[in-house]
């Protein structure tokens, strides 16, 4: 039951150029003992190159499943996801993932963790060039001092920086982040958001990021994808975030539009698609 050539682009602001990343009728159904369980149903979305997309939704809405299908670690049951018109079938370093728990290898230093990725992607380059790329990206995230430390000796924020350096060093076309700052304290989180934005400004890549933090999404993203609740979750609405870049947190928060958008999103999440725990 392939739903191809879907003529129901529910909520896409159809852009002028061909989409860079396209979700085409994506569904995910898990077989379970009590019959099949539909996590996502017929998700359609087009993303332009270099866009910063945030996804928000209640837990269990399939956000992570959706992103893991972009990374290729998971496959859609029906429909397909295309990157530059090529269907995504398996994981690859052109779609780097930053996991919530950093996923650094504990027996490798910060440098070695980044180098492993660099080595995989730039196979034709010399050892010296690979070393330079590694150091350059560790410097980019401000970790020059800590390159020889192992993850156990690094704070949560520093580990996340290593993970970002590792992801960016491979020059991915899509950067996938599943609640990257969820485990950080609020101050570190704001710092990391600003650094991420600065880096993204200089090294434009398409970003897909899951967050639970509305302010984070409004500060970072070009568009905010709001998911409906599972089972059979879908994209409820896509909010355009019109603030000009480079963004300044203070200025954005003083903008009356900020609160309009915020209230609109809150209304979506907590009134129209409130999460009713009693139902589960």
């Amino acid at each position: 039951m392939q739903i191809s050539n879907s003529t129901l682009p529910n909520q896409i602001s159809v852009a002028n150029s061909a989409p860079f990343l396209e979700f085409d009728g994506v569904s995910k159904i898990y077989p379970s003992a009590k019959g099949s369980y539909t996590v996502l149903e017929d998700v359609n979305l087009s993303i332009q190159e270099g866009e910063f997309i945030c996804m928000i939704g209640h837990s269990g809405c399939g956000k992570s499943t959706l992103l893991s299908m972009v990374s290729g670690l998971n496959k859609p049951s029906t429909g397909e996801i295309r990157l530059k018109n090529q269907p995504i079938t398996k994981p690859g370093p052109d779609r780097m993932v930053i996991f919530q728990n950093y996923s650094l290898l504990p027996w490798k230093t910060a440098y070695e963790n980044v180098y492993l990725a660099v080595e995989q992607v730039y196979k034709h380059k010399s050892a010296l060039e690979k070393k330079e790329i590694t150091l350059e990206h560790l410097e980019l995230v401000g970790l020059t001092e800590a390159i020889n430390k192992k993850p156990a000796q690094l704070s949560g924020g520093m580990k996340q920086r290593v993970a970002i350096a590792r992801a960016l060093a491979t020059r991915p076309e899509v950067l996938i982040m599943d609640e990257p700052f969820g485990a950080l304290d609020p101050i570190t989180r704001e710092e990391m958001q600003e650094e991420l934005l600065k880096i993204w400004q200089d090294h434009r890549c398409t970003v897909l990021m899951i967050t639970h933090d509305l302010d984070e999404a409004l500060f970072l993203s070009d568009r905010l994808v709001m998911m409906t609740n599972g089972p059979a979750a879908n994209i409820g609405e896509v909010l355009d975030i019109p603030f000009s870049r480079p963004r300044d947190r203070q200025r954005i928060m003083e903008n009356p539009q900020y609160f309009e958008l915020r209230n609109y999103a809150l209304d979506f999440l907590f009134r129209r698609f409130a999460h009713d725990d009693a139902l589960e």
Partner: peptide, 16 residues
């Protein structure tokens, strides 16, 4: 699983 995912995303070869 995290380490395995890293390996998959980076497409590490069998020996690697």
């Amino acid at each position: 699983q995290d380490y395995k995912n890293v390996a998959k995303v980076l497409r590490l070869s069998g020996t690697k």
